[in-house]
């Protein structure tokens, strides 16, 4: 059963077509990779899925609770409320806020108290805040950040900032998680740990994951299926083994001459 269906998705910026006629689907519970050379349009595709950009043409459909909902064209906040969460390639944490607040803010859509309680700190406020804090700390524990809960996000080392990005995305309680280069800038040991963590998150949080990654060791190890994007188009779709031997993929990465040699 596919949880996400992308049909003929296209995005042009002026004369440049960054994403062109992309069709793809994700099944419930899958862990899928999205790879491609620099500038292939991977992040643009993420921005289209999450509503940061409006598509020029095509639709994105999210299957939720047994019914299909077209999410393309909706606001990013609405798409997030429907269960699609993401991390950012260039790390966009709330950097002057604490680690704990970064996670709590992402839980805002599930908070059950209103404006009046916000001003007066009524019992509903105290109860909900307690629940939020516990849930946030739980997530931080999973991501190994519990000790750092009162640090400002900008003071975390790079690798931990990437972990916090994932924790924050998980805090929105998603059904589909999009990770944009989660291992970028990490050393091999950190990458190995992250690889394990991603698998663990999928099992325990019952989320479907789509990830962009340049680190092939990570992609080949955890992904069940891989889409390859080149010049805005999907040029291949298959298991890691299939992708590794796909001639067009090798061409895309290494150039035609090398592939033919």
């Amino acid at each position: 059963m596919s949880i996400l269906k992308v049909e003929k998705l296209t995005k042009s910026f002026g004369g440049l077509t960054a994403v062109s006629n992309v069709n793809m689907y994700l099944d419930q519970g899958e862990l899928v990779g999205l790879i491609g050379p620099n500038g292939a349009g991977k992040t643009t595709l993420f921005n289209l899925l999450t509503g940061v950009y409006k598509p020029t043409a095509g639709t994105v459909t999210l299957q939720r609770g047994g019914s299909d909902q077209v999410i393309s064209g909706l606001k990013p906040s609405t798409i997030c409320e429907m269960g699609l969460a993401r991390t950012f390639q260039n790390i966009r944490l709330f950097k002057d806020l604490t680690v704990l607040d970064n996670v709590r803010i992402a839980m805002h859509k599930d908070v059950r108290y209103g404006l009046l309680s916000s001003f007066l700190h009524l019992p509903s406020f105290v109860r909900e805040e307690k629940r939020l804090k516990e849930k946030s700390l739980e997530l931080l524990r999973v991501m190994g950040l519990e000790d750092k809960k009162d640090e400002l996000a900008k003071n975390l080392p790079y690798g931990e900032q990437r972990h916090l990005e994932i924790a924050r995305a998980l805090a929105t309680n998603p059904v589909l998680l999009l990770l944009d280069e989660p291992a970028a800038g990490m050393n091999p040991a950190e990458t190995a740990r992250l690889t394990e963590l991603i698998g663990w998150i999928r099992e325990n949080y019952k989320v479907t994951i789509l990830l962009i990654e340049h680190d092939m060791s990570l992609v080949m190890k955890v992904c069940e299926r891989i889409f390859v994007l080149d010049y805005g188009m999907i040029i291949a779709n298959g298991t890691p083994a299939e992708i590794q031997s796909d001639k067009r993929v090798i061409e895309a990465y290494l150039g035609e001459d090398v592939a033919n040699a």
């Binding site: 969460a85 709330f94 803010i105 859509k109």
Partner: peptide, 25 residues
């Protein structure tokens, strides 16, 4: 100090990230 207040602060910090985390900016 409330969740709505934190949502407001997240807008100052990064509008695009806030929106992507479900905050109706």
């Amino acid at each position: 100090h409330s969740s709505i207040g934190r949502a407001c602060i997240s807008i100052r910090e990064d509008e695009i990230a806030a929106e992507s985390m479900g905050i109706n900016i």
